[in-house]
Simulated assay, not measured.
Amino acid sequence: MFEKIRNLKNKKGFTLVELIVVLVILAILAALLIPALTGYIDKANKEKVIVEARMVVMAAQTEASSLYGKAGAGNNLSTATADSLNAAAAEAIKLAEMNSNEVGATATLTNEGKVEKAIYTNSLYTVVYENGSYNVYDVNGADADKKAALNAFTLTVGSTTGKATIDSTT
């Protein structure tokens, strides 16, 4: 009988206190790690929206170049019609792969067929492309002139504007 009790005392294992100490250490490490991970998630979301905005700028530039080429020798985009801008905006939606009702974009083109300014907005962020740089704003913190209407792509040359609605079913 005493031999069985001695054998139980000699068994190796963790005490309850040791287990609680390990759990407390793990909880402290998790508390330090979670804020760091959320920072990486926010940074990744901002990088993602910049990539989406670059696609919009490239699509607008492609369509601007196409319109400029169609204008003919000696002409520029000042002769562009609202119908041609509507068609270009619809094509830009396809090129930029905008297939959600929760995104929108506007692009202002120069008469020489270059993208002067572009604004891309999704449900979280607004990205403004101007002078070759991209600036990201929180959609709630951005001013009205730094937001694009959702569910549409708008192209503007001078005083002429073309607009196309994003079809989320395609």
Rank of each mutant, 00 (worst) to 15 (best):
105 A>Q: 00
105 A>M: 01
105 A>L: 01
105 A>K: 04
105 A>G: 02
106 T>D: 02
106 T>K: 13
106 T>R: 05
107 A>V: 02
108 T>M: 10
108 T>K: 14
108 T>F: 12
109 L>R: 04
111 N>I: 05
112 E>D: 15
112 E>V: 10
112 E>L: 10
112 E>K: 14
113 G>P: 10
113 G>L: 08
113 G>S: 11
114 K>F: 13
114 K>M: 09
114 K>A: 15
115 V>Q: 06
115 V>W: 00
115 V>F: 10
115 V>A: 03
115 V>T: 05
115 V>S: 02
115 V>G: 02
115 V>N: 07
116 E>N: 14
116 E>R: 11
117 K>H: 03
117 K>R: 15
117 K>M: 08
118 A>P: 01
118 A>I: 02
118 A>K: 05
119 I>P: 04
119 I>L: 10
120 Y>N: 11
121 T>N: 03
121 T>I: 07
122 N>L: 13
122 N>Y: 11
122 N>F: 08
123 S>R: 11
123 S>T: 10
124 L>K: 14
124 L>C: 06
124 L>T: 14
124 L>R: 14
124 L>W: 06
124 L>I: 08
125 Y>T: 07
125 Y>N: 14
126 T>A: 06
126 T>E: 05
126 T>S: 15
127 V>C: 03
127 V>T: 06
127 V>N: 07
128 V>E: 00
129 Y>F: 15
129 Y>H: 13
130 E>H: 09
130 E>N: 13
131 N>M: 12
132 G>I: 09
132 G>T: 05
132 G>F: 11
133 S>I: 13
133 S>W: 01
133 S>E: 06
135 N>K: 15
135 N>W: 05
135 N>H: 12
135 N>G: 14
135 N>D: 15
136 V>I: 11
136 V>H: 10
136 V>W: 09
137 Y>S: 07
138 D>R: 10
138 D>H: 07
139 V>I: 14
139 V>E: 06
140 N>V: 09
141 G>S: 15
141 G>V: 09
141 G>W: 11
142 A>L: 13
142 A>D: 03
144 A>I: 15
144 A>D: 11
145 D>T: 08
145 D>H: 06
146 K>T: 00
147 K>P: 07
147 K>C: 02
148 A>K: 00
148 A>H: 00
149 A>L: 08
149 A>H: 06
150 L>P: 00
150 L>C: 06
150 L>G: 01
150 L>A: 05
151 N>Y: 06
151 N>L: 08
151 N>K: 12
